[in-house]
Write a protein that binds this DNA or RNA. Structure first.
Lengths: 257, 257
DNA sequence: TCCGTTTCCAGTACGTTGTACGTAATTGGA
DNA sequence: TCCAATTACGTACAACGTACTGGAAACGGA
């Protein structure tokens, strides 16, 4: 199977040539990905076009294709690059609750720092090394508590779903606000606000209205709101652990270092 | 505030003119949205271009702009149109567990019927009437059990996060398989398979490897797998209900009919 | 009946996108 | 010194969203 037919980027590592003929590469995957991430952070992922990235590097668009097969692959590389910002110890060991809490909070700050991350990950499932690393840490947090592997993956998946959903709620209409060139606060006030008010006043959805009008958590900081939801999920997880389980001892020896 | 400045489509209802001068409209928002949904179902949302939709209707691309302000608005309309397929009774009343289970399963089949739905909803939060309707039903399922409104929205959010995540996992690489023109099963076997096998054999992520090799739920049907995860979430919700709550009586009178 | 006003239809055109292709430039090894 | 390999990048093409424009159609009032 030739490299050209390798669909996933993770089976097509960057060409590394220590010696031999041919011009020396002037750029790199990591450099290109870094520029793409910076543009996406500032102006949204749709602004990170091949031409724009190349211009930022002072070269032509087609030069990027030496390092990246297609733009879609670059998106996968971007996802994995920012997943590296999720700071975790080599292995879990603080007790399952604080371990999972750490993953959740780290993922949240990363997702807020790069508002395009979670929406993108949602529409393009990828299994880059950094994502696998974070996943492995979360799985490890629940290992050795007497759970089967399927329960572990299920519970971690549930936690992951909450974290992604919460980040999405927190990001909200950020992307669309940017698309229209308005600052997010003004956008919320002038456009989302009137619509929600209209829906509330119409009274068609009474519980939705109550959730807007009588909300107390709306007064909390986003971080506190996130922790409340996280506590709920962690309580749910805790309720499904085998009773009398050891606090955090792994059942298997740690992987070789 | 003129219509031109209304950013959200839900504040710009379709122009309805019962009489007066002017040519009679030959198409409609619903008709256009329907064609777009059909194309997206068959070939992915990126195939539902303005030109393509118009051609399917036997007209020019620019004619669509009489009914839809921008393509992005059409995406919101598509989301809401398929959300209408989530079949629910007028109001909950089967007990919170079966009510929520109903929403979950209905959402799942809808998400599978339109694989672009969940990824799209994830990258573009919208509050169309059909989505509000489904949300209201879910909120109603937990009303009258002694929970505050914030707890209700939190728990419903948690459930919703799981359902969306589960659908995403089930859809998997469907979209990318289609992009490459291969059928999904062949794609999984020839591309995803080798990569996962390589990761597993490298042994870098032992728990991930176990989750692949020792999984028993992988042998279940997707529907059973979904129900298992759903049961976990519902157990988590049940564990957080006030004790001795009435089974399903709403605390407030039903909305006017 | 005719006209003016309003609305819809649709062709043309512009700027932008991803990327296939071809050519020039650069390098190490024979 | 020449060859083979590799990178750099301008050109080109099809397809995209959509602004603009002129023409067609339908009604109310004259």
């Amino acid at each position: 199977m030739s490299d050209d037919e390798m669909i996933t980027i993770w089976m097509r590592p960057e060409r590394v040539r220590r010696s031999g003929p041919g011009r020396r590469p002037g750029y790199s995957r990591e450099q290109i990905t870094g520029v793409a991430v910076r543009i996406a952070d500032a102006e949204g992922v749709q602004a990170a076009t091949m031409r724009r990235i190349a211009a930022e590097l002072g070269t032509g668009a087609m030069s990027l294709y030496v390092y990246v097969p297609k733009r879609d692959d670059l998106l996968d590389l971007m996802i994995d690059m920012v997943m590296a910002e999720v700071e975790l110890p080599d292995r879990p060991g603080g007790g399952w609750r604080s371990d999972l809490s750490l993953v959740a909070h780290q993922t949240r700050v990363t997702g807020l720092r790069h508002p395009w991350l979670v929406p993108l990950i949602g529409s393009r499932p990828t299994l880059g090394p950094q994502l696998l690393r974070v996943n492995e840490f979360a799985l490890g947090a629940l290992d050795g508590l007497g759970l089967g592997i399927d329960d572990i993956t299920g519970l971690v998946g549930m936690l992951n779903d909450y974290v992604h959903g919460a980040i999405r709620r927190e990001i909200g209409w950020l992307e669309e606000a940017r698309r229209t060139g308005l600052d997010p606060e003004r956008w919320r006030r002038d456009y989302v606000g009137p619509y929600v008010r209209q829906v509330v006043e119409a009274g068609t959805y009474p519980l939705f209205s109550r959730s807007v009008l009588e909300s107390r958590t709306a007064l909390l900081t986003p971080e506190e709101r996130f922790r409340h939801g996280l506590d709920r999920v962690l309580r749910g997880i805790g309720a499904q652990l085998p009773t009398g389980a050891p606090p955090h001892t792994p059942a298997r020896p740690a992987p070789d270092t």
